[in-house]
């Protein structure tokens, strides 16, 4: 039995959805590393000035870190990180993860409603962690100005993209 009932399309960076009141865009993943351990030291060494962003926090410009757990974050920057994977002298570990997550932006007056369909988290709850379950999948959620920014694991991108296309119809 062939299981071919899933949509063939896997969105690439640049793909967009205009759902009337909400626009979604699949963005290029950029450069990212997972850092764990002494996060303060990691940010100071890898991206000085980068802000640590929790749930619904504004990523602003330049480098930023999406906090996943107490001692873990996804550090994102516009340029590659000049560091080898592994344990660092300042007591933190680094792993390249630029292709592990795909960012999706959602803008428009109904973007909040689409987000509310995907997660039970209260975005006003000031969670220091940007991690949540969105549409049943692990994701990181922040904001870039008026846009919601959602990082989903690459293998689930097609599903989440399809899900957004359905959720945005209402």
């Amino acid at each position: 039995m062939d299981e071919m009932s899933w949509p063939d399309t896997i969105p690439s960076p640049g793909a967009t959805l205009d759902l009337g009141g909400v626009q979604a865009a699949c963005l290029a993943p950029g450069h990212a590393v997972l850092v764990s351990g002494n996060l303060g030291a990691a940010l100071a060494e890898l991206a000085p000035g980068a802000r640590m962003v929790g749930l619904g926090g504004d990523i602003g410009g330049g480098a930023f870190a999406l906090r996943i757990a107490r001692d873990r974050a996804l550090l994102v920057a516009p340029t590659p990180f000049e560091i080898a994977d592994g344990w660092q002298a300042a007591d933190y570990g680094v792993s390249r993860a630029g292709d592990a997550f795909c960012p999706i932006s959602l803008v428009g007056e109904r973007a909040g409603q689409v987000i509310a369909q995907g997660t039970a988290c209260d975005l006003k709850g000031n969670s220091p962690s940007a991690a949540l379950i969105f549409a049943g999948q692990f994701a990181l959620l922040a904001r870039d100005g008026a846009a919601f920014m959602l990082w989903v694991e690459r293998p689930m991108l097609a599903y989440v993209w399809d899900w957004i296309g359905q959720a945005g119809k209402d």
Binding site: W6, P7, R154, P155, M156, Y159, Q166
Partner: peptide, 17 residues
């Protein structure tokens, strides 16, 4: 909406196409 293709989401390979 969790029916059809959204009921049992599968992970997809980058080289699927």
């Amino acid at each position: 909406r969790r029916r059809g293709a959204l009921f049992n989401p599968l992970k997809r390979l980058p080289l699927e196409p």
